[in-house]
Design a protein around this nucleic acid. Structure first.
Lengths: 145, 145
DNA sequence: AACTATTCGGATATTATTGTCCGAGATGGT
DNA sequence: ACCATCTCGGACAATAATATCCGAATAGTT
């Protein structure tokens, strides 16, 4: 599992909020958890985290909900969402958990895994929220079954 | 985290046992957990699992410990160790947790992740226990800091 | 036969993750 | 002013992962 469950929900929620914002709508917690098929209360917690980390915006009160700034959406990278939710990138860690795994002191899997790790990092750093939302808007991908 | 903690310990333990067997020694639980820097009791559980799954052999009683068949070592793949310990391959799962994520019904990360997933699977299927143990024996890699 | 070193297996404990509940505060509408 | 509908935030609960403990069984040694 590259993402924790919280992260999975967080990414899907962010994509949905961005998608709605692109279409001029604001998304409520109820909508979001329905659309991404996630537990409502738990999703609320994750959304709060995304708000605190300035990835999305919350609007309180009646007719409130969550939005995303259109310019921000284009700049927000997947890695920022992961860091906001998990606090840390567990891809930084050695696959076998060695404290000082490195080129000069590698674990038995290091050399086989380093390319994979690099690819994962690249994906996290390059993929934008806009990219993901667009693919959903265009019907090229979906957020639930 | 591609591997669970139990898996990390299991892989390192298997590599150490194989290494010792290649050198004609039997490894005790105490040795193993010292050499791979893991909690003894927890490691014992994991070793039992590896034994039950025929990846290593246990010898009870005084002067007992764990061994690995030399021919078996060459055939044992990383993926077998992971499956023995985790029971399931969580790389099979969709990165965003969709039940039916596929080429025709992809999640927003599917296309970017599928190559990575394939590479991970290839690594797990191709890497042998012998390969890892040899790299440790040759001083090319290590099991602890 | 007794002693010691070891694995085995079940019960239990701890910690992290995931998930729920509910009251408080905010906001728009009537 | 009141009400309905939201988010916020803290406390709590459930589950899963990680870790420990201990008595039993096994086998070599004396």
């Amino acid at each position: 599992m590259i993402f924790t469950k919280a992260c999975e929900y967080g990414i899907k929620a962010a994509v949905y909020v961005a998608e709605q914002s692109m279409n001029g709508y604001r998304a409520s917690l109820k909508d979001i958890s329905k659309e991404i098929d996630s537990p409502e209360a738990f999703t609320a917690k994750i959304l709060q985290t995304l708000v605190r980390n300035n990835i999305i915006i919350s609007v309180k009160g009646s007719a409130g909900g969550f939005e995303a700034d259109l310019k921000k959406i284009k700049k927000t990278k997947l890695i920022e969402i992961v860091l906001a939710i998990d606090g840390t990138l567990h891809e930084g860690r050695c696959v076998l958990g060695l404290n000082k795994c490195s080129e000069v002191h590698p674990c038995p899997v290091h050399n086989k895994y380093k390319h994979i790790k690099k690819d994962i990092l690249t994906m996290l750093e390059k993929t934008t929220l806009a990219e993901m939302s667009n693919s959903v808007i265009e019907g090229l991908s979906c957020l639930r079954n």
